[in-house]
């Protein structure tokens, strides 16, 4: 406890403003991954949304319970694409004709780490004098688990898809990430807000 207090005092003096709340760790990053791609091309009108959210979580490492309803996630992506002025092609047989293929993936990652402090062995005592030395402090080991979550939305260029089973170039992606913490409603709200934000900060996607 004392150590925490001292470190707060120490770090707060160097960093008077630092993240305090869970939401302070939320961020949304978007990037044009194909810089030459013409987002303003008037021929781009349609999209096909993959009907399954890809779960990237490694079940050997992390809890796979995502808590957020993935159907809500898909619907929010669909809503934002519609808002941006695109028309959905919902028939999977016609998916190859869509201008954009939209992929959604989510990840939950449990990051365990241990911090330890102390373990001062005390004084060695007086050589062979048989004194046991003094003041042994056992090391304090704390294992923490920082759980993080991420949602990734990708736009793939459907027009460059010549045939099936081909690698489709990604032209844009957005990543919302934050702490996987809070109740179900909170997690859902933050996830959906991240999706909205991806589109807000990418005005070039709007038709």
């Amino acid at each position: 406890m004392g150590l925490i207090f001292v470190s707060i005092l120490l770090f707060s003096s160097c960093y008077p403003n630092s993240p305090e709340f869970v939401s302070d760790f939320d961020s949304v990053f978007t990037e044009i991954s194909e810089p030459g791609f013409d987002f303003a091309n008037p021929a781009i009108n349609t999209f096909y949304l993959a009907d399954t959210v890809i779960v990237l979580t490694d079940p050997n490492v992390s809890d796979t319970n995502l808590e957020v309803d993935l159907e809500l996630v898909l619907n929010r992506v669909r809503f934002n694409m519609n808002q941006a002025g695109y028309t959905e092609i919902s028939d999977s047989n016609l998916a190859t004709q869509a201008d954009y293929l939209v992929l959604v993936s989510v990840n939950r990652s449990d990051n365990y780490f241990s911090t330890w402090w102390g373990g001062w062995g005390g004084w060695g005592g007086w050589g062979g004098w048989g004194w046991g030395g003094c003041c042994f402090f056992p090391p304090q080991v704390t294992t923490s688990n920082i759980r993080t979550g991420a949602i990734i939305v990708e736009l793939l260029d459907g027009k460059s898809l010549q045939q099936r089973n081909e690698i489709i170039p990604e032209v844009w992606y957005g990543v919302g990430s934050g702490l996987f913490s809070g109740n179900n409603t909170n997690l859902t709200n933050r996830t959906l807000r991240a999706i909205d934000q991806m589109f807000i900060q990418s005005p070039y996607l709007i038709r």
Partner: peptide
């Protein structure tokens, strides 16, 4: 020096990328 900027969108890489969130600058 220190500043907190809530819900701030920062453009990166000449507008090719952007990051949004609560920013802490020190």
């Amino acid at each position: 020096f220190s500043q907190r900027l809530d819900n701030f969108t920062q453009e990166l890489n000449d507008g090719n990328a952007a990051i949004h969130g609560n920013q802490f600058r020190t």
